[in-house]
Design a protein around this nucleic acid. Structure first.
Lengths: 238, 238
DNA sequence: CGACATGACTTTGTATACAAATATCGTATG
DNA sequence: CATACGATATTTGTATACAAAGTCATGTCG
């Protein structure tokens, strides 16, 4: 494999700046963010061998937090582990597509369970998020996309938490984190439609308010389905 | 919280013997198996604070492999993480039940994808596993249950691998590991029916051989559904 | 010329010392 | 008597030294 170029590529550059991790002080978080961003930015390309010492240097920490970060990154699906080593996952269209299909099943089930367990204060929180998303201006600008990504995450997480199941939260976090990151990076610039997305959010919240599990499940499935990339061409790294 | 008793409970006992980890030499694996078994055996009860130093002593390793093991245990859902600390998850009927519902959706989708991607050699492997399960004798004895658990895991993992998706494998591993462990511990003694289970396995394999995604999906869903505990009474812990 | 043994080098695994954060408990004070 | 404070102990976080395992290239022997 031609992985050596990939590794030598970050030996002499100022990555703390490029990866915007300069102000993160906790080494574990710093290492995690640094590795994650390096993968998503393509600095660490698919298949690249994740060497602990090199990553420690890259992120300005030691191997201990790097090892911890690597476990997170592997658990998220951004990298894969093999005997002793770890390698950057490939984000082929097929892989991203399948994770979306999993997410559709997982999160629509979460919406179903949430419909039976959500509290009034959580419903209020969802209303608040809807309003915040409506307030986003300069649609299309990076800042707006970033803001939407944050609120969108909160929306989905609030529903998942409303299932009152730790296991659901654990599993969903992993199924959701990868597509959200990959999408934010590759897909949204071209396809995200904030207004349409929030219309769907509103439908989901209405279903939840009526404590209607079937409707909530269906609405969530439709929502995620609409965000699933359906053309390989939009995956630059596929 | 009354967690102190739980922790003092393993300070003076010979756990290497009780947990059958005496012959595992790699510390990381030793720590992982020791912690996992201690949780499943109830030595570390739900809510117990997992202290690194105490676990290191318990498993006869140092904190480094323990920390690594704890990450695995948390990822599997056997424990939950909070700021800095980790605690044993609770295996309430509700939690176990929901993980089964997730598994139904995840693995039936895996069967669907597998039907379109499985190789002849994997189908042969599945046939081999079916035959091995048929050969199990002394049904009801612990050794037979243990053997079935192993072959059953291989069966399900072979299908998941046949999806040709790393992400599917990563996510499924986490959704499947917890129920399989908990079930082996609490449910199977009372409800497992090896012959019935293998009949269902055979149907799934037939569907896969015919490359029939709908059938494979449905058969897998039915199979897992049939193993899902439906009475709270069979959950001793909760 | 090829297969294989050998040894240097690379990479990960483990233990441990120390630092930082947090919890605990006793004491003083309003 | 309740509470706030502070010293002390506990627990986790980080860095690093060393061990073990694996890789790769080189050279020797068949």
């Amino acid at each position: 494999m031609s992985l050596n170029e990939a590794n030598s590529a970050f030996q002499d550059a100022d990555f703390a700046d490029d990866l915007k991790i300069g102000d993160i002080e906790r080494p574990a978080e710093r290492a995690y963010q640094g590795i994650r961003r390096a993968i998503l930015k393509g600095i660490l390309p698919s298949g690249a061998h994740l060497r602990e010492e090199a990553l420690a240097q890259m992120t300005g920490t030691s191997r201990t937090p790097v090892r911890e970060a690597l476990r997170r990154v592997v658990a998220e699906g951004l990298a894969r582990a093999d005997n002793r080593h770890r390698y950057v996952s490939d984000f082929s269209f097929k892989e991203v597509s399948i994770v979306f299909d999993i997410r559709i099943r997982l999160e629509s089930f979460a919406a179903r369970v949430a419909a039976e367990n959500i509290t009034d204060s959580e419903l209020a929180e969802l209303d608040h998020i809807l309003a915040e998303i409506d307030r986003i201006e300069n649609v299309g600008q990076p800042a707006a996309t970033e803001r939407f990504a944050e609120l969108n995450s909160r929306f989905h997480n609030t529903i998942i938490k409303a299932t009152r199941s730790m296991q659901m939260q654990t599993l969903s976090a992993q199924a959701v984190s990868l597509p959200l990151e990959v999408i934010k990076q590759f897909v949204w610039e071209q396809t995200v439609n904030i207004a349409q997305s929030n219309d769907q959010h509103r439908v989901i919240v209405t279903a939840l308010k009526q404590r209607n599990p079937d409707w909530a499940e269906n609405a969530m499935a439709g929502h995620i389905l609409s965000t699933k990339p359906h053309r390989p061409s939009i995956m630059p790294r596929g």
